[in-house]
């Protein structure tokens, strides 16, 4: 089936199979490998992307469900040359270690900040509780979101 969507500001059309997952078309067909896969069952959050502004698990989303939607992946939030404030804050505050969970973490944080621009630390903890990180112990990630406005 043909699906059309806007991804990172660009209108895109793809022919997909009914059982294809969103994460696979992003990574393998659109070359957007910033979106990671860590479990395939919604337990780790590494595959989070924004769909109509809300963070979703792209491993538990069918490609077909993207039809007509507006998507933002980690690449759409910013690049090393023009990073999103969250990406900058993650990098500066030591919130990145191996970095494999980081894109999903940043996407989940972007969803939070869109709804609550100045969340408290506990609200951030809760908002990121679906994104597993095995390297950090989380506190620098919480700092990065909490202090995103402080430079």
């Amino acid at each position: 089936m043909i699906i059309r969507f806007c991804i990172n500001g660009r209108d895109t059309e793809l022919d997909v199979r009914g059982d294809e997952r969103a994460v696979d078309i992003l990574r393998e067909r659109l070359g957007l490998t910033g979106t990671k896969e860590g479990c395939g069952t919604g337990e780790c959050g590494a595959c989070a992307i924004l769909v109509d502004g809300r963070a979703r698990l792209s491993c538990l989303t069918l490609a077909a469900q993207l039809d007509g939607r507006d998507l933002t992946t980690i690449e759409g939030l910013g690049s090393p040359e023009a990073p999103h404030p969250l990406q900058q804050s993650f990098a500066e505050r030591g919130a990145v270690q191996c970095g494999f969970c980081t894109p999903g973490m940043v996407v989940a944080a972007a969803d939070l900040l869109a709804r609550d621009p100045h969340p408290g630390r506990e609200a951030i903890r809760e908002a990121l509780s679906g994104n597993l990180c095995r390297c950090t112990g989380y506190s620098r990630i919480l700092d990065a979101v909490h202090k995103v406005d402080e430079r």
Partner: peptide, 9 residues
């Protein structure tokens, strides 16, 4: 390496 990782690059 942190910024490139945070940007998915």
């Amino acid at each position: 390496d942190a910024l490139a990782k945070a940007c998915g690059a």
